[in-house]
Write a protein that binds this DNA or RNA. Structure first.
Lengths: 155, 155
DNA sequence: TATTGTTATACTCTATAACTATA
DNA sequence: TATAGTTATAGAGTATAACAATA
């Protein structure tokens, strides 16, 4: 299980072992597995994965400025600008200028947005129940703890 | 603490708790954290993240057909076709038709490709040492085990 | 007929930089 | 001057379907 941190390349040892021991690749593959049924669900409702992330984040945190959404939803600001524009047109979110600092825009989820989330609750729950039953609830909780901690590492 | 649950989010039935307990979002955020320094490294060499994945996968598995690469590197076949075309032009990989089944194309890494990987070994190692020292080596191994298992769940 | 891979199209996200408005 | 966000543009991945070659 050595990741061969040191040493010259002349060893016959693979630098990081198989790619399944490469953290970025492992995270990506795991995400693809988990996301497949969710993508299917969203696709049926014509919502992109990104819009869904924005909706979830904004629903959770309440009023939020765009830089914060960008960070939480892993979307660059220029992408977010475009996404929010269409989401606003679709009445999923609303925007207003911050009174205290008029450079900032505050974004909120609308009733329509909340209803969109609610309308997916059941299918979403079923997907995660299935995942939990296959993967194990305790392991799932443990994994979430470990990922949360990893997110906070500052490299 | 970035994603603390603040504000009145309607205590009734939080479907999955905060988004940091949402597996897809947690996986994405963790990946962004880990990938940031790697992206920087690759960017300096003008290699895309996707090309890098293909290179790593093909280096590891040896001769491979494209469907297998597509799966391992999480890239759709149409995207992979284009990527391999440019990687072949750059002499990073080589392609040949399978003798047994001439529908299949076999892809291999070239010496140039291998050298490209080798030239990033040191920086790559340093990045992961830093990560391990902050996150903990045991935890890292445990996380990789859990992710590997998650990849294999069939929903 | 099914499978492997390619092509084509339309859409979307990314990277980057220049720009506006505000602080 | 610095920050929040927008706009513009080029590059790249995705989804989908139609297609060619082979099995």
């Amino acid at each position: 299980m050595d990741h061969a941190v040191n040493g010259p390349v002349n060893e016959a040892v693979k630098p990081f072992g198989p790619t399944s021991r490469s953290l970025p690749i492992a995270l990506l593959r795991a995400r693809e597995t988990v996301l497949a049924p969710i993508r299917e669900m969203l696709h049926a409702s014509n919502i992109s994965e990104q819009k869904w992330r924005v909706l979830r984040v904004v629903e959770e945190a309440g009023e939020m400025e765009q830089t914060a959404i960008s960070l939480a939803a892993c979307l660059k600001l220029p992408s977010l600008t475009r996404i929010l524009r269409t989401m606003e047109a679709e009445k999923l979110i609303s925007r207003k200028t911050d009174k205290q600092d008029r450079r900032r825009t505050l974004v909120q989820i609308t009733e329509v947005g909340r209803m969109l989330i609610e309308s997916h609750l059941n299918r979403n729950s079923r997907i995660f129940s299935r995942l939990e039953s296959q993967y194990g609830r305790d392991k799932m909780d443990q994994l979430l703890d470990m990922l949360e901690e990893l997110q906070q590492v500052r490299l």
